[in-house]
Amino acid sequence: MIQINENTPVAEREIRAFYTNDFIRLYQAYSDTIADSALSHGTFVSPPFSMTRMTWIKPSFLWMMYRCGWGKKDPNQQRVLAIDLSHDGFKQILSQGILSSHHNAVCEDQTEWKSKIAASDVVIQWDPERDIHMNKLPWRTIQIGLRNEAVADYCQKWIVNITDVTARATEIHTLMNAGKIDEALRLLPEEKIYSV
């Protein structure tokens, strides 16, 4: 059963995130090699991080947990990183974004949309948000794909801090498996509507 409270989104698509006056927090999951390198450098460097592949950033902690299976789904996604990004950087990313689906895009026709998405360094996708049990919720959360110049700017200009939150993810998952749902919920980051 879905609980409706003051934190429940009223719109189908809203950006919700943990943020402060200084940054917005996004999540990614990587292998030990990439995670250790990012933590030691305070950003992603190549190698081992690939600057030529699309990288996806997500402000929803629970959607990240769904994607990486609480860090247990794939050795290449076993380390969950919280990436704190400057507000200016995040807003620049959004301003460059093209929606990943034509039916959601504000374009005259499919050919125009295909041209725009091929040329854009930022792809925006809206996926069903998840609850702590990984059930779909009736609203969507944003994930953002970065490539080319957007990846370079992400790594070289906009990252404020990187933290390993794998242990927190494991603790929440362990509490869930033990049936201690209230304790698990208390450990989740407080994600609020992010206005742009």
Rank of each mutant, 00 (worst) to 15 (best):
I142N: 00
T55S: 08
I4S: 01
P9D: 02
G97D: 03
M64V: 08
I181V: 15
A17N: 14
R186E: 12
R67I: 08
A11N: 13
P128D: 12
Y27W: 10
V122W: 07
N76P: 00
K73T: 01
Q28F: 03
K180Q: 13
D84S: 14
W63I: 05
P48T: 07
K136D: 14
D109T: 10
K114R: 13
I98K: 15
T8H: 02
L62D: 01
A169I: 00
R130I: 11
Y154N: 10
R168Q: 11
D127N: 10
S100K: 13
Q92Y: 11
L26T: 15
S86E: 01
I98N: 10
L81I: 02
N5A: 03
K180W: 05
Q96N: 04
Q143C: 06
D109L: 11
L39K: 07
V106N: 11
A167Q: 12
T166H: 01
A178V: 00
D36G: 00
A167N: 09
H133M: 08
T33K: 10
A38H: 04
H41A: 14
R130F: 12
N21V: 00
V165M: 04
I117G: 04
A150Q: 03
I15K: 10
K72F: 05
K136W: 06
N5I: 04
A105W: 05
I132G: 06
M1E: 11
M64T: 15
H173L: 03
N5Q: 04
L26D: 01
T141Q: 01
V122L: 08
S40D: 11
R147W: 02
R79W: 06
G179Y: 09
T20S: 15
Q77E: 15
I172L: 04
S95H: 09
N21I: 00
D84K: 15
K157F: 04
I159Q: 07
D127F: 03
W126D: 02
W63A: 05
D131G: 12
N5R: 06
I162L: 06
K73G: 03
W113D: 06
D84I: 04
F18T: 13
A105T: 02
I193F: 02
A105F: 03
Q125P: 01
F23L: 00
S100V: 11
Q143R: 12
T166A: 01
Q125I: 08
M1Y: 11
S60L: 02
I4G: 00
W139H: 12
E191T: 08
I172P: 03
F44G: 08
E183T: 07
F23C: 01
K157V: 02
L26C: 15
S120C: 07
H133Q: 12
Y27K: 07
Y154M: 13
D36C: 01
Q125D: 14
K116W: 04
V80N: 01
H87P: 08
R168L: 12
S40W: 11
A119V: 04
F44W: 11
V106K: 14
E183C: 08
Q143L: 06
I117A: 06
T111Y: 06
